[in-house]
């Protein structure tokens, strides 16, 4: 038989060019979506920071009743959500991406501001909102264990309505993280500090954490705050 000819070499070249362009476009699109989300998160961060700061000043300067602060619940929820998104952005843009690193540092700052605010509420309102500080790492070697610990904390959060969980990436280059690690003597990732007193490392069962949590009355008394419980930044 005679050799068959390829119908059109030009068509192959065109298909290669169009296929490659669509392939690149797919990445450009997802990168653009990520960037839009990054910008949105940046705006939300500023807003949250402003609200916490505003509430605290209202209380300290103008004597507003800190116990009836309405924005507390919303701020807590927003904070928890954006922590997760920042983590996702870090995975998408890469660990060394300066923009995300800055947002993460800023986020740590807001978390601590919120933590301080909670302590103030506990003190001034005779409440007992419980806190958990979770020091995790996104290191690939222990990412699986970190996610497991995060899921356990998520379950703890769902089961305990008077609980706020703050998560900190111990690998983040930040003076605040360094100070926190020093203050709570954090030597390894997956360390959990419960109510600034008890330490649990890489827990395997929910009870290992819950045994240190107390029953609470403050949030049950304040209906606007009953959904406060959440994991911030997993």
């Amino acid at each position: 038989m005679e050799n068959r000819k390829i119908k059109s070499k030009k068509r192959y070249v065109l298909a290669f060019i169009i296929g490659t362009l669509i392939f690149i476009l797919g990445f450009v699109l997802t990168y653009s979506f990520s960037y839009i989300e990054y910008q949105r998160i940046s705006n939300v961060q500023s807003q949250i920071s402003y609200e916490i700061f505003n509430d605290k000043l209202d209380s300290s300067l103008f004597g507003e009743d800190i116990c009836s602060v309405e924005s507390f619940r919303r701020v807590s929820e927003d904070l928890g959500f954006q922590g997760r998104i920042i983590d996702d952005l870090e995975r998408k843009f890469g660990k060394q991406d300066k923009r995300v690193l800055f947002r993460k540092q800023f986020y740590t700052l807001i978390e601590l501001e919120h933590f301080e605010f909670v302590k103030e509420i506990n003190e001034k309102c005779s409440s007992d909102i419980q806190t958990i500080l979770f020091f995790y790492s996104n290191d690939e070697k222990i990412i699986g264990e970190a996610e497991t610990a995060g899921e356990l904390l998520g379950a703890v959060s769902s089961r305990n309505q008077n609980l706020v969980i703050y998560s900190f990436d111990i690998d983040l280059k930040s003076d605040l993280i360094t100070s926190l690690k020093e203050k709570y003597e954090i030597k390894e990732p997956l360390t959990i500090i419960i109510n600034e007193q008890n330490i649990v490392i890489a827990p395997e069962n929910i009870l290992e954490i819950e045994k240190y949590l107390q029953s609470n009355s403050y949030l049950e008394q304040n209906s606007s705050l009953t959904n406060n419980s959440m994991v911030i930044h997993l």
Partner: peptide, 15 residues
């Protein structure tokens, strides 16, 4: 394993 670790509390998983 996770279910076992949270003592089969399904409600706390599906939020």
């Amino acid at each position: 394993i996770l279910l076992s670790n949270i003592n089969y509390d399904f409600n706390s998983l599906f939020e």
